[in-house]
């Protein structure tokens, strides 16, 4: 099956990307906790009273509740931000088209038409756009809403904070006092690392969403095939019944005709 082959591929690249993303988080966290994080805007929320929500959908339908559940979740979550101004950012054609018709939502920008062949470069572009608006408008936070891939049959819609970056707490803290050596300087490293971290988080989100989409589509198509098969069976039985009934009727007519002649 085409969709299951696609799913396997998407799942493989996602599973391979997860360790990198985890290690990246480790390094970022250990540096962010030691360095002077107050001076880094990517680690600190802005104060404009505005947030941005990035909604990640696919470009195409026919995949069950994949797109609609993300959209529903996103709209429901808007209540949490009462008192703040919320900008939306649509990723994928489904999200763009959905909000195009609903003018009550404030969609700042969209990013579409890349799913067919997406890579790290798409993530870099998107991360660049998001980081830029976060810094320029001094947003309180940027969130991602997307389908997290659990298994081929299970996707879960989650909301994750992309910016500001929240460092994970280190379990052992006695060693972080040790003097670290940095090459080049601490500031240059931190800036570079934070930028790449955001890019990679966006990339992982894309991979999660893409794998979920393939899984949802496969499940939906399988259900459709099953339903069609069931319908074919029912209709075939109905057809046979009708055919037999008409044959029986003809036989009765012939027999009774012959009887009439003989009698």
């Amino acid at each position: 099956m085409v969709s299951s082959a696609k799913l396997r591929k998407a799942e493989r690249s996602l599973l391979q990307a997860r360790p990198y993303s985890d290690k990246m988080m480790e390094v970022v966290s250990s540096l962010a906790l030691r360095a002077d994080s107050k001076s880094r805007p990517l680690l600190n929320p802005g104060e404009s009273g505005r947030v941005e929500i990035v909604i990640v959908t696919g470009d195409r339908g026919l995949c069950g509740g994949f797109n609609s559940s993300v959209l529903r979740f996103a709209i429901a979550s808007l209540d949490k931000f009462s008192g703040k101004k919320v900008d939306l950012f649509a990723v994928g054609k489904k999200a763009r088209d959905f909000f195009k018709r609903r003018l009550e939502f404030n969609v700042r920008d969209d990013y579409v038409g890349f799913w067919r062949e997406f890579g790290l470069r798409d993530a870099t572009t998107l991360a660049g756009k998001l980081t830029k608006s976060y810094l320029e408008s001094s947003l309180d936070a940027t969130y991602l809403v997307y389908n997290e891939f659990k298994s081929a049959l299970m996707q879960r819609v989650v909301m994750e904070q992309l910016l500001p970056i929240v460092p994970a707490e280190e379990p052992e803290d006695d060693e972080s006092v040790v003097d670290y050596l940095y090459e080049p300087s601490e500031e240059a490293l931190l800036d570079k690392l934070l930028k790449q971290h955001v890019e990679f988080q966006v990339y992982r989100t894309m991979l999660e969403s893409f794998a979920s989409e393939q899984g949802a589509r496969m499940t939906a198509m399988e259900a459709a095939t099953d339903n069609a098969q069931e319908m074919i069976n029912t209709l075939t039985i109905q057809y046979h019944r009708a055919r037999q009934a008409s044959i029986t009727r003809e036989l009765i007519e012939i027999v009774s005709g012959a009887d009439a002649l003989a009698g």
Binding site: D179, Y180, Y182, E183, P184, L189, K192
Partner: peptide, 19 residues
């Protein structure tokens, strides 16, 4: 291969971060 020169690491190295 570090950004500012190659370096070797053995056990007991000092904490170090580089590009």
């Amino acid at each position: 291969p570090g950004a500012e020169g190659d370096f070797g690491v053995l056990g007991g190295h000092t904490p170090f971060l580089t590009s």
